[in-house]
Amino acid sequence: MTPLDEIDRQILRILSEDATQSAGAIGRKLDMSQPATWRRIKRLQDDGILTGRRVDLDQEALGFGVTVFLGVKLATKGRVSLEDFERAVSAIPEVQSVQHVLGLYDYRLRVVARDIADFERVLRRRIMTMPGVGNVEANVLLSEERRPGPI
């Protein structure tokens, strides 16, 4: 893997703000040619640094007004494997992310719902009924500031 220089870092910053930009548009911002910019982007992809591009959806505009972070402690790790829990919880459409964490809880889940009543339905009927689920702690998201990571 080639070490990153300042131009690579600038390309990553630009793409983290808007991944739909063309190599030509990025090159104009950096006073580089389109082919030179494209080659750098291709190298970042080949080296596994740039792993994809994604679309961020506005959950609220789609009707999901509540986001809750759940801390889940498994009650019986021996009877339910971590992989089984991850697979089962990932099948719930409202669960947006599943993170295996170290600390008070075994997992941190990001769950979206239409409102608090909808979240309660998901929690009671889908999550709490899963085998092995022990303690659960919910934290409702009040606001969120999104920032690109350090580059």
Rank of each mutant, 00 (worst) to 15 (best):
E60A: 13
V66L: 13
H100W: 13
S81Q: 06
A75V: 14
G103F: 05
G78E: 12
V111Y: 05
D115F: 06
P93C: 07
V72L: 10
D58V: 07
S97R: 15
E83Y: 07
I116N: 10
A91S: 09
D84C: 04
A117H: 13
A75F: 15
E94T: 05
V112M: 15
L109T: 03
V101P: 01
S81I: 08
D115M: 06
V89A: 04
L57M: 13
A88G: 03
R79C: 10
L57C: 04
P93F: 05
A117C: 10
G65E: 14
I92V: 15
D58Y: 01
F85P: 05
V89L: 02
E83V: 10
L109A: 04
R87T: 15
Y107V: 10
E60P: 01
G103S: 00
E86H: 04
Q96D: 12
D84Y: 08
S81V: 09
R79S: 11
L109S: 04
V111R: 04
K77D: 08
E94C: 00
A91P: 00
V101R: 01
L102M: 14
D58N: 12
K77R: 15
G78Q: 13
R87Q: 09
V68A: 07
R108L: 15
G103H: 00
L74I: 01
V80H: 03
R87F: 05
R114A: 02
L102S: 11
V111I: 11
V101Q: 07
I116S: 07
I92E: 02
E83A: 11
L109W: 02
V111H: 03
A88L: 10
F64A: 05
V68P: 02
F69P: 02
E120Y: 09
V80T: 11
L102V: 10
V101W: 00
D84E: 13
L62K: 05
R108M: 14
I92Q: 06
A91E: 09
A117F: 13
K73F: 01
R114D: 03
Y107W: 08
E60Y: 09
Y107F: 14
D106G: 04
G63H: 02
V72Y: 04
L74F: 02
V98D: 01
V89M: 00
R121S: 12
F69A: 05
D118I: 14
D118F: 12
R110I: 11
R87A: 08
R79D: 09
V80C: 02
Q99R: 14
V101C: 03
F119P: 02
V112F: 03
S81P: 04
R110N: 06
V89I: 12
D58G: 00
D106E: 08
E86A: 11
Y105L: 10
F119Y: 11
A91N: 02
G63F: 02
L70K: 06
V72S: 08
G71D: 02
T67K: 06
E120L: 15
V95E: 05
R114T: 13
D115T: 08
F119Q: 05
R110Y: 01
Q99V: 15
